[in-house]
């Protein structure tokens, strides 16, 4: 099984900064039982397991990154080597099957349209208890996946991202609120069926098209 080279960083790639409103994100789930058919929304448990990384939720930009790739699962060694942020034009070795990655076809997945979640405001304004944060979709290439994007919250009052704060700050009460906001936002807008493909024009991710 060869690793798909199209999702690895390469020296002709750059950070994607164009408007992605019409694009969709995809994220894997641990299993395929992820949907509440009655409410027609994703289950909370399917969003992030168990509750880590809600300040920097990993997704991939759908397009060049296709559904087949959500089944790529890094091994422990693969995590050590490839699960790191990197520049978009970083040179990386190609992951090796069984050593760095396996195929986990028990996984499920969901999609979300960027338009529905970007710049959404989470606002708490009760008595003196105020918090305002804005949802941002950030291109955050990783060594295993150039198409890696993060769902993050920008804290308007602190003028910084939630994930950039120290551990003590992250443990404050509003962290639970933003974790709640992330999950409810995804539950509200996640979809289970493949949306219309919107493959980004090459000029937006290649230095030289």
């Amino acid at each position: 099984m060869d690793y798909p080279g199209v999702i690895l960083p390469n020296n002709n790639y750059k950070i994607i900064e164009c408007d992605l409103s019409n694009c969709n994100l995809i994220r894997h789930t641990i299993d395929k039982n992820i949907w509440d058919d009655d409410l027609e929304m994703i289950l909370d448990k399917a969003i992030c397991h168990p509750k880590s990384n809600m300040n920097d939720l990993s997704t991939s930009l759908l397009g060049v990154f296709i559904i087949d790739y959500v089944f790529l699962k890094l091994t422990d060694i693969g995590h050590e080597v490839f699960s790191q942020y990197c520049p978009p034009d970083c040179f990386v070795d190609t992951p090796i099957f069984n050593e760095h990655f396996v195929i986990d076809d028990s996984r499920g997945y969901w999609f979300i349209n960027i338009f529905n979640i970007k710049d959404i405001k989470a606002e708490y304004n009760h008595n003196n208890d105020k918090l305002t944060a804005t949802c941002k979709i950030c291109h955050t290439p990783m060594k295993w996946n150039y198409w890696h994007f993060s769902i993050r919250w920008f804290l308007d009052d602190k003028n910084c991202f939630w994930n950039d704060l120290g551990e003590n700050e992250k443990k404050k009460g509003w962290s639970e609120r933003l974790a709640h906001e992330t999950r409810s936002l995804i539950r509200m807008f996640a979809i289970k069926d493949l949306p219309n493909d919107n493959i980004l024009d090459i000029q937006f991710y290649c230095k030289q098209a």
Partner: peptide
């Protein structure tokens, strides 16, 4: 309305009423 025991040490009710959705 649905209820979910989450991995966040919490119980979450999601419910819809007319055009409103609550978590």
């Amino acid at each position: 309305i649905s209820v979910e025991l989450t991995y966040n040490d919490s119980i979450e009710f999601a419910f819809k009423k007319n055009d409103f959705t609550f978590f």
